[in-house]
Simulated assay, not measured.
Amino acid sequence: MLTNGHCKLHLIFRKVLCRYHHIWNIDLRFRPAFLGAIMQATGNQPPGMLPKRNDYMLKDIKRMGKYYQVPIKATPEHLQRLLVPLSLGAMRFITAIDMTQPLFLEAVSRGFWIRFWSQHEDINQPASILSVAARTGLSSEQAQKLLEMVSSPAVKNRLRATTDDAMKYGAFGMPAIVAHFNEEQHLFFGCDRIELLASIIGEKWLGPVPSLPNSKM
């Protein structure tokens, strides 16, 4: 149901969907995709390229983190780091997990996101990748084997295929969700489209944290 990549809204999107997973009784499937390739193929540009939008994003990220209760932090310097490739190693590692250890997919993806967007640390170097793996429950032996797979043709081809699939659905950035409902496919972009997703599948939006008693419509 879901295609995802490494970006600032990634964890917000995933986190809220996971909160609604059983409430809406949906079949939720995460598929790693490489954002850089999608941006290049579709001619899209990072929003931070526009100074005024960059200033707005810094304020909006803070508001969204508070609203969705997700630990996201950003500075002007941090946003500038998005203008260079920095997540390919992480996305290939996540792809290897998706192929061999899918039960760890959610936890490791969240670990990379928190390391970059909350702690402002590297996620591309082998030592960084192994650190995330260790914190999410993978044994050192499992993590090392997965790291060795990162440069393999099988992993590269799998990530390329899922990225191509995302673009076939119409994705031009991340996060993107494809909802299969009543034999139709519906593409949504951005974490603020979850309410529209609810309307398409005939479910109720109960707020960003539906488990809390004071969640509002």
Score class of each variant (00 low, 15 high):
Lys66Gln: 11
Ser128His: 10
Met91Trp: 07
Lys145Met: 07
Gln144Ser: 15
Pro47Trp: 01
Ser87Gly: 15
Ile12Ser: 01
Trp24Gly: 07
Tyr68Lys: 14
Phe30Glu: 03
Phe30His: 04
Arg63Ala: 14
Pro153Ala: 12
Leu196Ser: 12
Ser215Arg: 14
Gly170Tyr: 06
Ala37His: 11
His10Gln: 12
Ala33Lys: 01
Leu35Ile: 15
Leu28Pro: 00
Ile123Cys: 04
Tyr68Ser: 10
Lys15Gln: 12
Ser199Asn: 10
Pro32Phe: 04
Leu138Phe: 14
Val84Arg: 13
Tyr169His: 15
His120Val: 08
Phe172Lys: 01
Val70Arg: 01
Cys191Trp: 01
Ala143Phe: 03
Ser215Met: 03
Glu141Gly: 12
Val16Cys: 08
Gly170His: 09
Ser215Ile: 04
Gln125Thr: 11
Leu159Cys: 09
Phe172Thr: 02
Thr3Gln: 06
Thr95Ala: 13
Gln45Asp: 09
Ser109Trp: 00
Leu83Gln: 13
Ser211Ile: 14
Met149Ile: 06
Ile61Leu: 07
Ser87Phe: 07
Asn4Leu: 13
Asp27Leu: 09
Ala37Gly: 11
Phe34Pro: 04
Leu138Tyr: 07
Ile97Ala: 10
Met167Leu: 05
Leu159Ile: 06
Pro51Ile: 12
Gly43Met: 06
Ile12Asp: 01
Asp27Pro: 12
Ala37Arg: 03
Leu28Ser: 00
Pro76Glu: 02
Phe116Glu: 00
Phe13Asn: 09
Arg81Val: 08
Glu121Thr: 15
His21Tyr: 03
Leu206Ser: 14
Lys8Ser: 08
Leu146Tyr: 03
Phe116Ala: 00
Asn54Glu: 06
His6Met: 10
Phe172Glu: 00
Gln125Met: 13
Arg31His: 12
Glu183Tyr: 04
His6Gln: 03
Cys191Asn: 13
Leu197Gln: 02
Ala176Gln: 00
Arg135Trp: 00
Leu130Lys: 10
Tyr67Ile: 10
Thr3Phe: 11
Arg160Val: 01
Ala166Ile: 14
Gln185Met: 07
Leu105Ser: 02
Ala179Pro: 04
Leu79Arg: 07
Leu146Ser: 05
Arg53His: 05
Val155Cys: 03
Arg115Ile: 06
Glu183Ile: 12
Lys59Cys: 06
Glu203Lys: 15
Asp192Met: 07
Trp205Leu: 12
Asn214Trp: 10
Ala171Asp: 02
Ile114Phe: 01
His21Asn: 08
Met99Lys: 11
Arg135Glu: 12
Glu203Val: 15
Pro126His: 11
Leu147Phe: 07
His186Glu: 04
Pro175Asp: 01
Ile26Glu: 00
Val132Asn: 07
Gly111Met: 01
Met149Gln: 13
Ala133Val: 06
Ser151Leu: 08
Lys216Thr: 11
Met99Ile: 15
Ala143Leu: 07
Val155Glu: 00
Asp60Ile: 09
Pro126Tyr: 02
Trp24Ala: 07
Pro153Cys: 10
Lys73Asp: 02
Glu141Thr: 15
Gly202Gln: 08
Gly5Met: 11
Arg63Asp: 12
Ala127Glu: 10
Pro71Ile: 14
Ala171Ile: 11
His22Glu: 14
